[in-house]
Design a protein around this nucleic acid. Sequence first.
RNA 1: GCGGAAGUAGCUCAUUUGGUAGAGCGAUAGCCUUCCAAGCUAUAGGUGGCCGGUUCGAGCCCGGUCUUCCGCUCCA
Length: 482
Amino acid sequence: MANEINNFQEIISHCKEYGYIFQSSELYDGLSAVYDYGQMGAQLKKNLRDEWWKSMTQMHDNIVGIDAAIFMHPTVWKASGHVDNFSDPMIDNKDSNKRYRVDHLIEAHVATLEKEAGETMIAEMDQLLAADDLAGLKTLIETNKIKCNISKTCNWTDVRQFNLMFSTQIGSVAEEADTIYLRPETAQGIFVNFLNVQKTGRMKIPFGIAQTGKAFRNEIVARQFIFRMREFEQMEMQFFVRPGTQMEWYNYWKDARKKWHESIGIPAEKLRFHDHVKLAHYADAALDIEFEFPFGWKELEGIHSRTDFDLTQHAKFSKKKIQYFDNDLNAEGKAYGNYTPFVVETSVGLDRLFLTVISLAYQEEKWNKEDGTEDSRVVLKIPAKIAPTKLAILPLLKKDGLPEIATALLNECKPHFHCFYEEKDAIGKRYRRMDAIGTPFCVTIDHQTKEDNTVTIRYRDTMTQERIPLSEVKNIVAKGCM
RNA sequence: GCGGAAGUAGCUCAUUUGGUAGAGCGAUAGCCUUCCAAGCUAUAGGUGGCCGGUUCGAGCCCGGUCUUCCGCUCCA
């Protein structure tokens, strides 16, 4: 484990040194748990996003993609339950440093009381919660001598409100009614557009709506590099199904999503399922696809069976009917008719996926050269199809007409994939630089090229090289990146 | 949020008890060489995270603060 932690720090350093990830506002000492993607990182992230987008929307006839706004009507978050569930009064015990949700603490205490006294206390608590009376809640806890389970003391901090949603105002006048939130999840943008997409796209159930985009959570503790950030990007797809079939689709997507991760080079043994025991208020089944990060097994993607909770809630809060008319015939030969679809959600953290790919790709290699001396390199073995730069074009010398041939090759290739051209420094050094940023293919133009129109192609992962026709470079690299 | 550790050049680090900061690698320009970090020359890059205090004098001592990592906690 010590090695792995060490390794994790080296990955973080490497990400910075080679333009993958920088801390946000580093010039001003940084902003906690916010990161920027650099020139290499932005491209890798885009490639991951594109790969996901293609697998969802292009490869499934019945899934379409949308791009909903980050700002949404405030009532959306009341309907979704985020206003109630995302902002909880909390209190800390100063002796044990244990933090409790105030309502949980009081409810646990109530469970030890007589029925009548308990009900009185719950009623009092509800009143205080409704009035946002934080001082009153603390008084309630203290007068009833509610103790911490660990320290067995009543040494409490003040009750504080933690709201995991960021808020801001729309319009220039700061009034209560104008407060809006930065979305804490992208899913609601899909739910509120369910009818728009279904009707304009003439979608038939079962069908899905996919979306990628930023979401924001004011985490109490945000840490572990880009694993838990305050601003992060989700890639999610809501799959609308006929009520009663949700478990079938839940299992379908569970397998489909794991296979997708494997398709971008994540080894199966580094992935596992983790079923949720305690379910969220909206779900009837939920699991995580976990990856073995350098700091342990952690959630990479969530698969949730969200029932009809979200659509029902939005129908209720908007006072509009959100239903689907299903013309398919059931076993009795009658149309299924009107119903509120059930939803199976797949939701990946793009930043987590990025971290997964980088932590798998990062390798330090050592070997002995022919003369017996030791040699080494740091290489990012990013699968070719998601690597930020696909091909480096390197004239062996920057004279004798070699740069001209190289430039012509560059111009031929760059409309098709991302290339990098370099004529400085010894060839070995240039190879190492390409290893460090994860370029899967290098092509070197030398004097022989002028004679027989062949070049050397050098493979990042094996460091082997072979002679290929100059005219084949584009096709070979393009094929290697599929 | 609590506790622990840390912050010196792009990276990795040095700077013995307080006396105005160095190296290796890397980078840039040039020469030479040419298939796996070669050589030579030159150049750039740090108000020691930031603010304050003690001191004749602080990278070093003290306080605060920001950031990161680790453990706990939290994660609808």
